[in-house]
C-alpha cells in the first residue's frame, strides 16, 4: 500500500518499510535523507523545514504514479518531515517495493530526485554564525 505524508514526527524507517512488500515483491529499497552536520564548510546546528502541505501530498502521489508506470514497481511510500530536524535525523524517507531489485533501485532514485526537484518543501539551515533559506534549482518548475 502506498503512503504519502508530511509530518512533524520523527521518521522511523523500520515502521515506514514495514508491510511495503506484497507477496509478489522480491525487493524493497529504502532511502533516508539525513541532516548533514556540515554544509558548504559550515557547521550545521539544525534544519527547519516548511511545506505547502496541501500540495506536497498530491505531488508525492504524482511522482509515485510516474515511477510506477516507468519502472513497473508496486509500492511507493514517501514521508517528509517538517519543522525542526536535528543533525543525524532523517528529513525524508522513500520506500519502493518491486518484483525485482533493479526496478526498485531505479525507481527509488528517480522518486527521490523528483522529490528534490518539485516537491513544495523548503529548508532553512541554522549554522554556526547565522541562518539561511536553502534554495534548490533556480529554474521555475512547470512539472
Amino acid at each position: 500500500m502506498d503512503d504519502f505524508r508530511i509530518t512533524t514526527d520523527r521518521l522511523e524507517e523500520a515502521a515506514i518499510i514495514a508491510g511495503a512488500a506484497g507477496v509478489r515483491d522480491g525487493a524493497v529499497v529504502a532511502f533516508s535523507g539525513v541532516v548533514r552536520g556540515r554544509n558548504l564548510g559550515r557547521r550545521v546546528l539544525h534544519l527547519e523545514y516548511e511545506a505547502y502541505e496541501a500540495m506536497a501530498v498530491p505531488v508525492f502521489e504524482r511522482i509515485a504514479e510516474a515511477a510506477r508506470s516507468r519502472f513497473g514497481v508496486a509500492t511507493v511510500r514517501i514521508h517528509h518531515r517538517i519543522g525542526r530536524v536535528e543533525v543525524g535525523e532523517a528529513s525524508v524517507v522513500v520506500v519502493v517495493a518491486s518484483g525485482h531489485r533493479g526496478a526498485a533501485f531505479d525507481a527509488a532514485r528517480r522518486v527521490m530526485d523528483e522529490v528534490k526537484r518539485i516537491a513544495p518543501v523548503w529548508k532553512r539551515e541554522y549554522f554556526e554564525g547565522g541562518d539561511v533559506w536553502v534554495e534548490g534549482p533556480k529554474e521555475p518548475v512547470t512539472e
Binding site: 511545506a51 528529513s91 522529490v115 528534490k116 518543501v121 523548503w122 529548508k123 533559506w133 534554495e135 534549482p137
Partner: peptide
C-alpha cells in the same frame, strides 16, 4: 508562489 524548492 513557490521560491526554488529545497526539500529532501
Amino acid at each position: 508562489f513557490l521560491p526554488p524548492v529545497s526539500g529532501g
